[in-house]
Every structure is written in C-alpha cells, then in structure tokens.
Write a protein that binds this DNA or RNA. Structure first.
Length: 811
DNA sequence: GTAAAGCGGGG
DNA sequence: GTGTACGCTTTAC
C-alpha cells in the first residue's frame, strides 16, 4: 500500500513510501503552453534569455481542450483537439519561472512579436508529487483489496508549561508527551507518557531532562506508519520543532523522515515524510456537523464519552505537585485521539484509493478538492487538458453568481401521526447521469439548438461528458459492492475460520461504498464551487432546477394518490394519508399505499432515478422549514434543526425542551406537555434561595446549578466594547483575583433587580436571589415556545393559566 | 441593511 | 511548495 510520496530535491527524485519499502523514481515536471516551438524559442532568446537554462525539452502534443466560456454561443465547440507545446524542466521550482512566458506582460510585448502568439499556459500549478500520482495512476497499486493494510498507528499528545498567555517555544518547556496505541496482533493497548519529573503512574517513563524527552519522543514516533494528533498540524509539531531548535537539538525522525511544516491556507500542515501524520481536527471539521470541534466535543459526538476535565490553567499546579492526575489527563487525550483516528482512518484510506492521492493530502482535502483530483486523473487518462483554476477577478466574479437551490416546502405545522418518508436515491448524481450534464456537453453544436432545452441549455446526446462518465463508473462500482455485501450478509452465518477475514473484508467493502457515496454526492457541489477547474454555474443551475421539478412533481403525484405531503426538502418528502380520501390512515394502510405509489412513480421516472421508501414514523412535529422532530417505531427520536446542545443555554432550558419534545412525540399528549412547562414555571417561581452546592432543602425542585449559563471569552476582556453578562462577570472574577484568558468559559447566573441584565449577572457560587422571571421568559420559554406554537399553544396560555386568582387580581 | 473582520483547534 | 482555506458569526459602518 502506498503510504506517502515525497520529492527529494537533493537527489531530484520522487520517493514513494510503502508499508514495506521506499521506491525511488525519476520523473520530470512539465507544463503546457499554447504556442509553437519556434515562437517559444524566439521569444525566450529575445525577451527572457535566462529562461532557456530551465528547459530540458519542448515537444508538440495533441490534447483535448474543454471550452468553459461562451456557453451561450451555439456554434462554439465544447471540446476541441489542439496541438500545444509541452515544456519539460529539470526541477519543479522551474515551472513557476516558465509560467512567466504567459505572465510577464507577454501580451503587450507580443502584440508586435513577429512569428506568432504565446497563449495560455496549462497545468502549471499541479504540485509535483500529485502530478506524479496523476500520471502514474494506472501503475500504482494503492491498496491491496484483500485485507485491511497492516498499519502501525499511534496517537500523540503534548503538554507544555502554560500560564495565562499563549505558550511560546522559546520560553515555555514541554512537560510531557503521551502516546496511545493498540497492537492488534497481541490485542494489547499501549499507553505511555514520557516526562522528566517523577509521577506515580504506571504508564510514565522518566527521562533525564527535556532534551531527552524530545529525543525519546522522536524515537518512539518513528516506529509507526501513522501518527494521529488533534491539531498537531498547528500546535504539537510546530511547537516540538521550535522547541528543539531553541534547545539546539536536531529534530530527527530518521534519515528519510524529515519533519516539514508547510503552509496550507493560513494554517500549517505538519508532515514527516514516509510517516502519515493524520490530524483529526480538520477531518472532524469537514465530516461532522457540530457547533464546536474541541477534542471533547468530537469524543462526545462519536462515542458519547465525557472527558475528564482539567482546566488548562491547572496544568502548571498539577505539574508542580507531581500530581498523577496530569498524566491521566494527558493519556486520556491521547486515547481519545486514537479512537477518533481509528474511526476515520478506513474512510480516508478508501478516499485515497479512489482519488489516487496519498493519505496525508487526502486527510486534509475538502470533498470538492477530492473531486478535482479524481477529475485530473481521468482527464489525464483521456488526454484532456485540465482547465485552469480561476485567476484574477474570475474567482470573485464566480462568488457573486447566485442561482436557485433545492425546493423546500413550507411544512404543515403541528403534530402528525403515521408518517412515511420517501426520498430520491442520489438525486443530483442521477440527474447528472440521466441528462448528461457536464461542462463539456452543455450547448454542444453537434446536437444544435434543440427544442428540449432546460433553462435555455441543452446537453449533448452523442457523447458522454467527463463528469457523467466518472459518476457512472462510481455508481456502478458502488452497486457491485453493495451486491457483494448483500450476498455476504445472507450467506455468512457459518462460524468457520474464514469468518474473521470475511468480516474484515465486509467492513472494507462497506467503507468503500460509503466513500464512493460521499464522492458521488460531491460532484454537484464541485461544479458550483468557485475555485473549481471544471466550474460550471450553468450545469449546477440546471441540476437544482431539475431537482426542484422532480420533487414538486412527486409531491403533486403523492397528493393525487391520497397522500398529504406535510414537508419536503430538496430530494425527499414526509407524508401522511389524507383523512378525506382514505377510510383508514393507520400504519398498515399507509405502508401499503406507499409501496403501491413508489411502484407507480418509479415506472415513470428515467432509468437512473428512483424514489425510495426511507422510513415510517409513529409521530412527528413540524415547526418550520428545516426544523422538525420525529419518533420511529423503536422510540428513537430524530431531531432536525432544533438542537439546544449549546452551552450558552442553561440546563433548565435544555432539560425542559427535551422533556416537552419527548412527551409530545411519545405520548402525543399536548396537555401533559403544557403541564410540564407550567410546572417548571411554578418551580422557578419557587426557587430556592440557597447558594450553589448547598442543599436547597424543603420542596425546592430546581437545583440552582441548572441555572448557570456558560459563555466563552473569545478575546481579552478589555477588548469587549459591549457589556454582555459574561463580560461583566468575567470582570468581577478578575477583580477578585481570578486569572482569565481568551478561551476561558465563564459561567454566570442572573439575580433579581431592576438594573440591566449585565449588571445582574453574578458569579454562580456567590448568588442566592435568582431572577425567576428572567429564567422563565428568556431561558425556559423561548425554546419550548418554538415547539408549542407549532401546535397552536400560545405564550399567554402557558403563563397565564398559572396565575392563581387572588383578590389582588380580582379587583 | 451590507461589508468587513474575526475566528476555529491546541496548551 | 508547479497550491495560499473556508464558512460561518460578530462587529463596524
């Protein structure tokens, strides 16, 4: 299996690292230019003679060019064969110099250049090692399909001396490094912490000093194929490097394994050649959809495990006291990092295999970039010339181009029972294939200005486009895998020796089909992505237009068949049976009708498109577009767009909303839900006036702890211009001597009074007279009201019923 | 209202 | 490294 690929500039060679050995290859960089040999030579002689030394060869080659502009012009060929010059150089760094041919005001000078034109350069910005993989994609065995590659993986985490400011490698020492690994051969978990102070902990290895710690760390890491970190790109590795420089010790992972920091956007990427450093933070960011992506948030999301909390400011005190809790904390981070790594690795390996780029790059690529490299690979195999990335104003112009997206139906608000959901299997990919939508098939002259235009465009009927062709391959490959999986599922009930291998193989195939699905679904987004080489707003526009037409037509047909469509979004819908048209709207009836309806509609749909049964739900509450909740037959609750998992809501608000939603979905009883809210309001009015941590006593039902609201300091306190509650409290904490820094989470409660909220925000453990009305109106009610209002309950109903009739009210 | 600026993860 | 993010939220105008 290909682990990594690197360019050794001293030897001027490509290094390919596999699990077993290093292979060295000679490969030369090149670019294409739209000019003939004589013109290039003459131009260089007369204008830029120094460029001559970089060129090792110029040859004439035929390539197929896709015209991305002038779409409206029905006479413009979308693809043309063209003869270009391929200029080869010795070193990759020569390529940018040669790009000058086009750049250096060439056009002005060439206005009166005698022998011809120097046109555009192409493929001048493809990184060298990626270029190698594109050009040799047919020869490289990226992955052995028969087993999961035997990779040795370790996670790595580092603690540094850290007090009230950003740690600086020139001042603040590395305290310890931790490692976690799982040796699958002997099924043993390996935990290790290296440090230079005595800690009473079984996993600790004590070394002489910090220099030894760094040396030992490098030695340990270089024994592995894969290193997982969490934000190691921008913290652990850069810090390790600068600290080693400061201590004047060489950072050495082995002769062919250098640590290289490179810029990726505004951030860094940390790579050790030959060893795959996988930073899980960028993967978590693009794979999961969370509000926060701290290590604890991601662990919670994936494994539902809570982290042992050691505030960062406690690191130094624990260190000073030789407290083993610090070791435990550091190990825990390493362990969670490892778990997240194992969770994501198989998919990343599959992407690497399908896209044909190395794991390090893949793990830092967006799905649009993966699509682009997949296209570059196919483009090379088909002798196409890759279109250039946008430059100049082009990117800005593309950004401004808007178009209509998917169709979202305004939901029929409220509670519904016996709901089915149906959705189109891979709607956008199917549309792309069915209509042959591609930048090289749009408005082709060969099919002429036909009658069946879509938004004024037509697509070639004679030749398949590059994007539909790749998509078709991917989808067929996925279908084959799914067939194999289905087969395995039914035949694999015997417990023979092969079972484990088969099981591993099953998992691998399953990861492969998942990754193909993700890639296939990214092609539409790719064509709409302003930095894409094969960008086509027109194609993207046609795809959503057709998507809207299909979902609208499906809604209409469903309504004609006795359904009531309560909600629809882009490629799927939720429906119940219409009471007026059906005798019985129970589960059995709706499921039968759904099967019948799906059969009918799929007969009418184009071959590649299919509406599928997605699920049956006992009950659902629909609030607004993108906001709804459902419960299935196993009492599993699915919530969309309604989550209040954020820390800037008090526990009492989150708890009440959850209770209300559960009651409504499980029991369908509005009165009980109303009562929960009323009870909470009453309990709040009867709040204990005790400090947090003290026993509230008596009939007090609310723990003051549940009233705390948390907000983060995102900059220094002095930089805030507005007086928000958490800043006011932060100032009070500072005044009493707390050291606060950016990133600290401030907890506060609101107490009684008539002054602004920010003045009534109080440090939780100092408060007793909590402001019940604030919690009722600003914390508990808003989230539950969003739900209750959808079923026709007003705020007044929830609040006023609560009032007892007293003489005061009466008069 | 829109445009510009800020921010993320790590310690 | 033949590449210079990105997609939101907050603040400023």
């Amino acid at each position: 299996m290909l682990l990594d690929i690197d360019y050794n500039s001293k030897e001027n060679r490509i290094y390919i690292y596999t699990t077993k050995k290093i292979i060295k290859k000679d490969f030369k960089p090149y670019l294409y230019i739209d000019a003939d040999k004589n013109t290039i030579n003459k131009f260089i002689d007369e204008e830029e003679p120094q460029l001559k030394e970089y060129i090792t060869a110029i040859e004439r080659v035929k390539k197929i060019i896709i015209n991305l502009n002038d779409i409206e012009n029905p006479y413009k060929n979308r693809t043309v064969e063209k003869t270009l010059s391929k200029i080869t150089t010795d070193h990759p760094k020569d390529i940018p110099k040669l790009r000058k041919l086009q750049k250096i005001k060439a056009n002005q000078r060439l206005a009166n250049f005698p022998n011809g034109k120097i046109g555009t350069t192409y493929e001048h910005d493809i990184p060298f090692t990626k270029r190698y993989l594109i050009d040799n994609n047919k020869n490289i065995d990226l992955l052995n399909y028969n087993n999961i590659p035997d990779l040795k993986a370790v996670s790595f985490d580092m603690e540094v001396h850290f007090k009230d400011r950003e740690p600086e490698p020139e001042k603040d020492a590395i305290l310890m490094t931790s490692f976690y690994s799982h040796d699958k051969k002997i099924n043993k978990k390996i935990k290790k912490v290296i440090t230079y102070k005595p800690f009473e902990h079984e996993s600790v290895e004590i070394v002489k000093d910090e220099k030894e710690l760094i040396k030992k760390t490098m030695e340990l890491l270089k024994q592995y194929n894969i290193i997982y970190t969490y934000n190691g790109d921008n913290f652990d590795f850069p810090y390790l490097k600068r600290r080693a420089e400061h201590l004047k010790i060489p950072l050495n992972f082995g002769e062919n394994h250098k640590l290289k920091l490179s810029k990726g956007g505004m951030n860094l990427k940390s790579a050790i050649s030959g060893i795959v450093h996988i930073d899980l933070y960028p993967i978590a960011r693009r794979t999961l959809n969370l509000t926060k992506y701290k290590l604890e948030d991601v662990s919670k999301e994936l494994f539902n495990i809570e982290k042992l909390e050691v505030g960062h400011h406690n690191i130094v005190p624990l260190w000073n006291n030789n407290n083993p809790k610090l070791v435990e904390y550091s190990l825990q981070d390493a362990e969670y990092t490892y778990k997240i790594g194992e969770y994501f690795l198989p998919l990343e390996i599959m992407f690497s295999n399908i896209v044909g780029q190395c794991l390090f790059d893949i793990s830092r690529m967006s799905s649009s970039n993966m699509v682009e490299y997949l296209l570059l690979k196919h483009s090379f195999n088909k002798n196409y010339l890759a279109p250039n990335r946008p430059y100049g104003n082009e990117y800005q112009n593309r950004l401004k181009e808007g178009y209509e997206g998917g169709y979202v139906k305004e939901p029929i608000k409220g509670m519904h029972d016996n709901i089915v959901s149906m959705d189109f299997r891979a709607l956008y990919p199917s549309i792309i294939i069915s209509y042959n939508i591609s930048p090289d098939t749009i408005n082709c002259p060969c099919c002429g200005d036909t009658n069946d235009k879509i938004l004024g465009y037509w697509f070639c009927k004679k030749k398949i486009g590059i994007i539909p062709e790749i998509l078709k391959d991917l989808i067929e490959r996925r279908k084959n895998i799914k067939d194999v999986l289905k087969n395995k599922n039914t035949t694999e009930n015997n417990k023979d020796d092969n079972n484990k291998n088969n099981n591993e193989n099953y998992k691998l195939l399953n990861y492969e089909q998942q990754s193909i699905k993700i890639l296939a679904n990214s092609f539409y987004g790719y064509m709409a992505y302003p930095r894409a080489r094969w960008y086509s707003k027109e194609c993207a526009e046609v795809i959503t237009h057709l998507g809207r037409a299909y979902i609208r037509k499906t809604i209409e047909e469903a309504e004609n068949n006795g359904f009531n469509v309560i909600y629809a979004d882009t490629d799927g819908l939720y429906a119940i049976l219409d009471e007026n048209k059906n005798k019985n709207t129970n589960k059995e009836n709706i499921l039968n009708k759904t099967i019948k309806f799906l059969n009918e509609i799929n007969r009418e749909l184009p071959e590649k498109m299919e509406l599928e049964f997605e699920g049956y739900y006992k009950r659902g509450i629909f609030i607004t577009k993108k906001r709804y909740a459902l419960i299935d037959e196993n009492n599993k609750i699915i919530v969309k767009g309604l989550e209040f998992v954020r820390r800037d809501w008090s526990n009492i608000a989150k708890k009440t909303q959850k209770k209300v939603l559960n009651t409504l979905l499980k029991e369908g009883d509005v009165e009980t839900a109303k009562q929960i809210i009323k009870d909470t309001i009453n309990d709040l009015k009867n709040l204990p006036q005790s400090k947090i941590g003290e026993s509230p006593g008596g009939d007090k039902k609310i723990n003051p702890k549940d009233l705390i609201i948390y907000k983060q300091l995102t900059k220094d306190i002095s930089e805030y211009s507005t007086a928000t509650p958490h800043i006011a409290v932060a100032k009070k904490m500072r005044d009493r001597g707390d050291r606060l820094k950016i990133g600290d989470v401030i907890g506060f409660v609101i107490v009684n009074g008539s002054s602004p909220i920010s003045e009534r925000a109080t440090i939780p453990e100092q408060a007793t007279n909590y402001d019940a009305n604030y919690y009722i109106d600003n914390q508990v009610l808003p989230p539950v009201l969003r739900i209750m209002e959808a079923i026709g309950i007003t705020k007044d109903e929830l609040k006023n019923n609560n009032k007892q009739i007293t003489l005061d009210n009466f008069f």
